[in-house]
Write a protein that binds this DNA or RNA. Structure first.
Lengths: 194, 194
DNA sequence: GTCTATACGACGATAGAC
DNA sequence: GTCTATCGTCGTATAGAC
């Protein structure tokens, strides 16, 4: 379980960890936020002992969080946003993205890392990483809205993002996931209609 | 600083703390969430030592959180939701509620307690208190939408709530508070129009 | 009701053997 | 690169003097 990264992306600054480990670290930060993601929980989730985690991430917990955010951004771009830029009818692409979104967020039962990890963290690196991921999200949505012929595509994109984030918060607070499904369903009129 | 509660509301189950202290406790939970709201921070914010906090709240940190949520719900009902049920034109009342909302959330710079405190807390009392407050919020919005003649007032109310919550999350993640101002501005069409 | 003092476990982080 | 063991600090929570 240590013969990883054959010739993958050399863009990451350091920190060697397998995709599975990053998945598990990501899950902890996503569910518990910065303060709730303790080394104990991260250790239990990955099966690695504290010292091994620090071996992979010499930058400590902050580096783990940044790596988790970048990993989440990559997964989100590949799984959710990619269908938006493929060939085919815009409405169909937006619909496919909606399905991917619903899966990504467990149909309203899993929170957004960009939400949970930004609570009261005073680490500039984390804030920057989140801004990066969310910016890409907005850009991809805006491109769809522009293709649909809307005159303020960025505003439309942000509106869609707001609806998703808000519905996840409401789902967490009330236990009702219908608003999330509504937010996904309304993507068509928000992004694919002029 | 201890001659409080003359004959106020005997509805609260126990826990004697002044409004100012509850304000300060509320501010800590709102900004830092459940895990980040440490006794040190609560002690520093109130000026009370740990033991004094436990004297006011024999139920410990959970009791402090529940009291903060109820206090926030009361303030929100009095400051923000009350204008909706007063006399006068519906559009004007909704507009006034928008102004109160903007002030309550620092124009997008202060988060919602119902959001931050629900992150990874496994305390049923806290979840119940939040559900209570959010439920009242939805009901008040739905009453306005019903008065406007909408046929699905509850859905409209939830849509407005989602927009506000989502814009606060986006503001936290990106630093841009314009989506929040937009959410407030759109209250008129969401709640006051048929 | 306020305080000082403290219990005891969990926190992030390291040292150093293997 | 993995582990055990440990550091010093902070977490929630109490005891008990005043």
């Amino acid at each position: 379980m240590n013969e990883e990264r054959p010739g993958s992306s050399p863009a990451s600054p350091a920190s060697s960890a397998s995709r599975e480990e990053l998945d598990q670290i990501l899950a902890v930060f996503r569910a518990h936020g910065w303060e709730g993601a303790s080394l104990s929980r991260l250790s239990a989730a990955t099966g690695l002992h504290r010292a091994s985690l620090y071996h992979r991430f010499p930058g400590g917990k902050t580096a783990m969080a940044v790596a988790a955010i970048r990993h989440a951004g990559q997964k989100f771009a590949d799984d959710v946003l990619a269908p938006l830029t493929e060939d085919g009818d815009l409405t169909e692409r937006v619909q496919r993205t909606g399905l991917r979104l619903a899966r990504f967020f467990g149909h309203g039962t899993r929170w957004c890392l960009s939400d949970t990890i930004t609570l009261a963290v005073d680490e500039p690196a984390i804030a920057a990483a989140v801004r990066d991921v969310v910016g890409g999200w907005i850009e991809a949505f805006a491109a769809a809205a522009a293709e649909a012929g809307h005159d303020a595509p960025r505003e439309r994109a942000i509106a869609a993002l707001v609806a998703i984030q808000g519905s996840l918060v409401v789902a967490r607070a009330t236990g009702d996931t219908r608003p999330f499904e509504d937010a996904i369903a309304s993507l068509d009129t928000t992004l694919a209609q002029p």
